[in-house]
């Protein structure tokens, strides 16, 4: 039972790492970035090509991933989302365009990655970091598993603190609540948006590198598979809340782990999505969702 719990928390941390950046951007500046999965994968891929020539340690790979993710995300914001918003200042009306713009961006990144990797899985076996396994009582735990757990919870804590206390975080939350009033109060929305997307991109890049270490390898299409789980985790927890995305990821992971170990892996996604369905029926705004002020 303990082992199941640890495994569930590990899977939850994978989801959390992936979903965190997406959740921050969505919950504050209202951008649901469908290219998040591709940014994640692309950062890991660039890190892979670099590590093939220089054997880097893990921390350097993580930094590299974060840098690539930041650049991609800032470019996406500047070249796609910002241009959409400029033509369509009403965020609600622009929502669909942003989703579709993200879909387009994602297919560009995916196509480039498929071209260079031929969709053959890639991993960081050339890195200086080596996986080691420890036995704690009945439980096997690996060093990379520990890194994942610490990174996921640490970054989530950092994001929560930043949104709550830092000045920029406050301004961001203000945008999330009411963009117009916030801009009247002197919040520079487009600069804030660029900064947020940069942070979200960095998170995507970090997640890409760490998950590749943990899973051993990913393929060009892996980002897509995580995207829908992340979307589910964020909705389950409630948009705009870090506690929400943590809870959502963990519940989703626990449900999947229980189904895989007790029933059959075939049903895992059905049960996980069935669960989301049920939760939403009783809590139409997710578990931690605030009362929506933007939309009826």
């Amino acid at each position: 039972m303990l082992e199941i719990l640890i495994n569930a928390v590990t899977l939850g941390s994978l989801y959390l790492l992936f979903a965190l950046g997406m959740s921050v951007a969505w919950g504050t500046i209202g951008i649901l970035n469908f290219a998040h999965g591709s940014t994640f994968m692309f950062s890991a891929m660039v890190a892979y090509f670099v590590v093939q020539t220089v054997a880097l340690p893990m921390w350097a790979m993580v930094l590299l991933g974060a840098a690539v993710g930041t650049v991609l995300s800032v470019l996406t914001q500047a070249l796609v989302f910002n241009l959409i918003l400029r033509r369509n200042p009403d965020l609600l009306k622009a929502e669909m365009q942003i989703v579709v713009g993200g879909i387009g961006t994602a297919s560009v990144l995916l196509a480039i990655a498929q071209h260079y990797t031929k969709s053959v899985p890639f991993g960081f076996s050339a890195s200086t970091f080596k996986v080691a396994t420890y036995q704690l009582g009945p439980v096997h735990i690996s060093n990379v598993q520990l890194v994942i757990l610490v990174a996921a919870l640490g970054l989530a804590g950092l994001a929560a603190w930043w949104l709550k206390s830092a000045r920029a975080g406050l301004a961001l939350r203000a945008i999330g609540v009411n963009p117009e009033v916030a801009s009247l109060m002197g919040v520079d929305r487009s600069r804030m948006a660029l900064g947020t997307m940069a942070a979200a991109g960095a998170l995507a890049g970090i997640a890409g590198v760490l998950l590749t270490y943990y899973l051993g390898s990913i393929a060009a299409e892996t980002g897509d598979s995580f995207l829908i789980s992340a979307f589910a985790a964020i909705i389950l927890g409630g948009i705009g809340s870090v506690a929400g995305v943590v809870t959502g990821s963990m519940i989703l992971a626990l449900a999947e782990t229980l189904v895989v170990t007790q029933l059959s892996g075939t049903w895992a996604s059905a049960v996980a999505f069935g669960l989301i369905f049920v939760v939403l029926l009783f809590l139409p705004r997710g578990i931690f969702g605030r009362k929506e002020v933007r939309r009826t």
């Binding site: 033509r87 365009q97 579709v100 387009g104 961006t105 297919s107 560009v108 196509a111 498929q114």
Partner: peptide
């Protein structure tokens, strides 16, 4: 590069 062009067309249309 057809898939790249495809994605770019979608982006341009969205903008």
């Amino acid at each position: 590069w057809q898939d790249v062009v495809y994605g770019v067309i979608i982006i341009l249309a969205a903008i």
